[in-house]
Amino acid sequence: MSWQDWASGVLLLLGCGFYLAGTLGMLRFPDALSRLHALTKTDNLGLMLVCAALAVRAESLRIATLLGVVWLLGITASTVSAHLIARYARRSKEAEP
């Protein structure tokens, strides 16, 4: 195996580990806001590592750049939706008697 295969393998496994940690955090953390912490941050790092793993074995700079764009779009979507869910969770908690 070439060094690219090794590097991308390690990065992929690490990335999947963070996805696993995010899921675990979502199941274990006590309230909606804390669960969002687990999802946004581990998904950000997990996606970063998976994209880096694929960029290492990409055949051209174009594909590597595209993977960077994928990561940026992914974290933009994740941070915006986290903010919207957090806002909704906070408001519905306030509305309770």
Binding site: A21, F29, A38, K41, T42, N44, L45, G46, M48, I75
Partner: peptide
């Protein structure tokens, strides 16, 4: 991002939360 991901991943795994 790296620090944030590692921090929250660690907290999710530790039994005493």
């Amino acid at each position: 991002s790296v620090l944030g991901g590692m921090d929250v991943a660690w907290r999710a795994f530790v039994p005493r939360l």
